[in-house]
Amino acid sequence: MHHGSNWYCCRHFWPIFGLLEKFSCLQKTSLVVADTETGTMNPQFDSIGKQFVDFYYKAFDANRSELAGLYRPHSMMTFEGVQLQSAEAIMQKLVSLPFQKVQHVVTTVDCQPTTDGGVLVMVVGQLKTDDDPPHGFSQTFVLNNDGSNWFIFSDLFRLVVHSV
């Protein structure tokens, strides 16, 4: 695998990402916007989503087994139509994907706040595995905060491949 990339290991990096987010929130006068119609929305949704995406694909490409810290027992994934639940099942799927090298290049990241303070993230990009030609992909996340750290509650992945 990729030795020397352990700096990006979730165990080190992810809590820092969580802290950064908390600090940046503190600079605002109101941390969250509470409203009867909109629920409790996080005003930092855009930077949270973008920081997450940046971190996620760096970690995925360096050593995807280290993504384990981002999923929880109740996290869900739909990978090419296959539904999985729990960090364990999700990691088993990700680690068993049959390629040695992978590189994600993100084209667009779009974020929206959810009513429970989480963040909805939609990614469009390209990925390249081993010697294959690049493929388009689309991935959607729902990020939630457990009070101290962000984690992935939902993860939906599709290659953008059309039928003929």
Binding site: F79, E80, G81, L97, P98, F99, T129, D130, D132, P133, H135, L159, V161
Partner: peptide, 8 residues
């Protein structure tokens, strides 16, 4: 196949 068989 251009490699999509790795995913599905």
């Amino acid at each position: 196949t251009a490699g999509q068989e790795r995913f599905n």
